[in-house]
Design a protein around this nucleic acid. Structure first.
Length: 869
RNA sequence: GCGGACGUGGUGGAACGGUAGACACACAGGACUUAAAAUCCUGAGGCGGAAACGCCGUGUGGGUUCGAGUCCCACCGUCCGCACCA
């Protein structure tokens, strides 16, 4: 029967308008209902959405629509992470104001997102660059300042000479700015910090309760926070050659048990002692400069050698004053971890061993590994850094490494040097305070005034917000606030004298550290409405890219805690995100022209298949090179524009393809064939629905036919499986279940039972409802076609009929010695004895047994029979 | 170097310790058509065989188990993260 093709672009616009008009995605203010807060990481308004967004938001939308159908009051908001460098770069390049550029991008992207048919509550839209948002951020900042959770301090900062801005350590990649790619220089300046280190222990401990987070993200955060138990140990400096006033070196170690294996002490190039020595030692100064130039990134240091410089100074061993140990400056010792000084135990640490071998320093074995022979044990090129028994360590000999730790720690805490204990047990974290100062315009101004008399003074509440001046100039790099003629001039709120406004703005990670809270009451007069936050938070399902595993997610966890302590948010909710899902990237083949330039997928045509598959550059007709499959990126031009796809195939098609096949946490490869497949399925559903809609809807009485029962069982099994798989975000498996059910439904169309039409209608309704979260427009159109005049988007998820989930006959595999020999089909209720008898009677089984009796028969009901011969 | 993840057909991938390869893509053959597209049907892990069927098969080698893609050990490979964290 001929059916008109489903015209996706046309119907999609129709239904989007209908949804908008009905306002069905506005979250209900009734706080007595069970709630579900679904959130995808909000986008930076770059101007266009990309396929990664499509995937991210499609996933969140499926979850949100499903939960809505399950009766939850769903909050599914969207906003814009709208501050940041690109707007300022655009201003520089195109002479448009960052605000103009940003809001134009927001408009364009909002239109694109709307065309995807996402069930978003746009009434809660937030743009972080809007003063309505950032004025609250300034209030929060001042509360943190009051609590001592924000502070200004000196810091060695990473200076990006291209972006003219400070980068957090975390934002420097391979010694280069993570956005600009420029080589980063070290600079010393006064900057603003958030005291995330004060929460290190809590942020670490609370990770274990985040059981709906991926294990790998929790692990990455735990490693990032980096708790280590050790002790600080003070080494007296031998006066010979020591600069005036320098009498000791304090090191931090996690292995005080290996103290008797010490053969050197190494300090960082930036250690105060090294600096003093360098003043009078040109060679050392040169060495220290070299260390700074090399940066601190792992890869550079790894490729380079471990370098040291012998200062000629000596320190006295804390447990043996007659034992003098040389002091070196080493490039692998970092000033900002621990005390910037270590003691080297080559026998117990691989890095120290490499260093000792290179500079010919003594290697004293102090740990005898388990199973090693004391008489013959020696250290070659591999350090014994594990557990074992202490040797060559005087009073520690014979103890385990763990016992030795405690014994030596006790001893050092009892020993005195200049009236203070030589050693102290300490817990240290590698997590450093979060530097938030940015020397740029397009960010939230830090609401502080600098007065020569009063120092840094908070802007009084009545003077908030501190708004960005609109008439800044963007004709050259650097901070437009700094060079603005009037904006920074003000009077001190305390003494009234002329003063200077802080020109730093905040890191955009601050903006995204609390937006999820603002969404719960976006118009609240205070930053956070406690009642709304308590109802909606935590976010029940947060979805975003793995690239935010540490920074954004850790900052948010910290910031919500800090807001709680400062009274800016209810302290009852500690963790903002109850469940986290990190989706994989969208990848695509890359293409290059003969001359080596990257080509867009739309610049080439593909001919042939498999081994003879080749690409032709359309513009020139010349062969193009098919490259590797990579993450879609502007630089490699392997982009597919969501607009093109949606215009041609429809949003449902793009959504469906994004959810099919690849597990959501893994990368998905965008292929033309895949989209076509999704498009075909849409037409197939449409034909099915149309066919069924044209049948009479009468129900037949009497005993249901087996044909009807069969297709109904398929429907309810799919319904059950799809629900559970959406709940678990296993969209690819849910898609497969739907395909399977669709196949069963197609097959049933040709059957003739007189009660079939009623069953088919029931099945079509189920089909339409289970595809609805993924392909909402097609589902809505199908729903109407089936004769309903309500909005499907408001319909509940169907109830599973448990009786239809079980088959009355089941097939069991029959194995002999674990090898499959056949199968038997039995009544579901068959006993084990019946199953055993049926299995043993099976011809291939008789043959395999060759007349031997079965030694043992294992029957797993409804699954398998295994005969052990 | 450290930490983590992953290895299943031509491809993407399924598989509570229980019939490996569901489902899809690509492919081949057939039906419909003047033809194509669309659609429908059929086939397909490898080897051998006309077939029945047999053997092999989830990176490699061991182990646990009646039974291992799944659990354990060792290795190989690929990918990701990283701040030599003392």
């Amino acid at each position: 029967m001929a059916t008109e093709r489903y015209n996706a672009p046309d119907r999609e616009q129709h239904w989007q308008a209908a949804w908008d008009e009905a306002g069905i995605y506005i979250a209900d203010s009734d706080q007595t209902k069970p709630k579900c807060y679904v959130l995808e990481m909000f986008p930076y308004p770059s101007g266009r959405i990309h396929m990664g967004h499509v995937r991210n938001y499609a996933m969140g939308d499926v979850f949100a629509r499903y939960k809505r159908a399950k009766g939850f009051n769903v909050l599914h908001p969207m906003g814009w992470d709208a501050f940041g460098m690109p707007a300022e770069n655009a201003a520089l390049e195109r002479k448009t104001h960052p605000a103009t550029w940003t809001y134009a991008n927001i408009d364009a992207m909002k239109r694109q997102l709307k065309s995807m048919g996402l069930s978003l509550d746009w009434s809660r839209e937030i743009a972080t660059c809007n003063v309505a948002y950032y004025k609250h951020q300034q209030e929060i900042f001042l509360k943190l300042l009051e609590k001592g959770l924000a502070y200004r301090g000196p810091g060695k900062v990473n200076w990006d000479p291209v972006d003219q801005t400070v980068l957090a350590n975390e934002q420097v990649i391979d010694g280069r700015g993570w956005r600009s790619g420029a080589l980063v220089e070290q600079r010393e300046m006064q900057v603003w910090y958030f005291k995330i280190s004060a929460f290190a222990d809590d942020l670490l401990k609370a990770l274990s309760a985040l059981d709906k987070w991926p294990e790998k993200v929790r692990l990455m955060q735990a490693n990032w926070i980096g708790r280590s138990e050790g002790m600080s140990v003070r080494w007296a400096l031998d006066p010979k050659g020591a600069p005036a006033g320098e009498t000791e070196i304090e090191v931090f170690t996690t292995r005080p048990d290996t103290l008797f294996g010490a053969s050197f002490v190494a300090i960082a190039a930036d250690h105060p002692l090294a600096r003093k020595l360098a003043e009078k030692n040109a060679a050392l100064a040169e060495f220290a400069d070299e260390c700074r130039r090399r940066g601190t990134s792992v890869i550079e240091i790894e490729k380079g050698e471990k370098l040291g410089f012998d200062t000629g100074l000596k320190v006295r061993h804390p447990l043996d004053p007659d034992w003098l140990v040389p002091v070196w400056v080493a490039n692998f010792v970092l000033m900002d971890y621990g005390t910037g000084a270590i003691f080297g135990c080559p026998a117990g640490d691989q890095r120290d061993l490499d260093f000792a071998r290179k500079y010919d320093l003594p290697v004293i074995p102090v740990i005898l590994p388990k199973g090693a022979d004391a008489a013959t044990f020696e250290i070659g090129q591999t350090a014994a850094d594990g557990e074992g028994t202490m040797i060559n360590s005087l009073f520690l000999d014979g103890l385990t490494t763990a016992d030795a730790f405690q014994k030596v720690a006790d001893k050092l805490e009892g020993l005195m040097l200049d009236g203070r204990p030589v050693g102290q047990r300490q817990v240290r974290f590698r997590l450093k305070d979060w530097g938030i100062s940015r020397q740029r315009y397009w960010g939230c101004p830090v609401p502080v005034i600098h007065c020569e008399t009063c120092g840094a003074v908070a802007v009084p509440a009545k003077d908030l917000p501190v708004e960005l001046p609109e008439d800044a100039t963007f004709d050259k790099p650097g901070n437009p606030l700094e060079r603005h003629p009037t904006w920074k001039n003000c009077t001190c709120p305390q003494c009234g004298k002329p003063a200077r406004r802080e020109t730093d703005t905040m890191d955009t990670f601050v903006d995204s550290s609390w937006y999820y809270g603002r969404f719960t009451a976006p118009d609240s007069a205070s930053a956070i409405d406690a009642k709304a936050a308590n109802y909606w938070l935590p976010v029940d399902q947060y979805i975003g890219g793995i690239e935010h595993a540490i920074l954004h997610l850790l900052y948010s966890r910290f910031f919500w805690r800090a807001m709680g302590e400062a009274g800016a948010a209810p302290a009852s909710v500690k963790e903002p995100f109850a469940a986290l899902f990190t989706q994989g990237m969208v990848t695509h083949e890359t293409y290059k022209s003969e001359s080596g330039g990257w080509l867009l997928p739309t610049d080439v045509t593909i001919e042939g298949e498999g081994d003879v598959r080749r690409a032709i550059e359309i513009a020139t007709g010349k062969p193009a090179i098919i490259g590797s499959i990579e993450k879609m990126s502007k630089s490699k031009k392997n982009l597919v524009d969501p607009d093109d796809i949606i215009e041609h195939w429809g949003a449902d098609c793009a959504r469906w393809f994004m959810l099919s096949d690849s597990p959501p946490e893994r990368d998905v490869i965008w292929t033309e064939a895949g989209v076509q497949g999704a498009g075909r399925f849409i037409q197939r559903v449409w034909r099915l629905v149309t066919d069924i809609a044209e049948r009479p809807k009468t129900a037949a009485g009497g005993t249901p036919s087996e044909d009807a029962m069969e297709v109904r069982r398929a429907a309810h099994k799919a319904l059950d499986a799809v629900g559970r798989n959406i709940e678990a975000l296993r969209f690819n498996v849910a898609v497969a279940q739907i395909y399977e059910f669709t196949n069963a439904l197609s097959a049933a169309l040709g059957k003739k039972a007189n009660d079939l039409d009623a069953a088919l209608h029931e099945c079509a309704v189920i089909l339409v409802k289970i595809i609805a979260p993924m392909m909402p427009h097609l589902a809505e159109e199908s729903w109407a076609r089936l004769g309903y005049n309500t909005l499907l988007a408001k319909e509940p998820w169907p109830e599973v009929n448990p009786a239809l989930l079980v088959d009355d006959r089941v097939t069991l595999a029959v194995q002999v010695n674990g090898k499959r020999r056949g199968e038997i089909t039995l009544a579901r209720a068959a006993t084990n004895a019946e199953a055993e008898a049926a299995a043993l009677a099976l011809e291939p089984v008789v043959k395999a047994l060759e007349g031997r009796p079965a030694k043992k028969v294992i029957v797993v009901p409804q699954r398998i029979v295994n005969i052990v011969a």
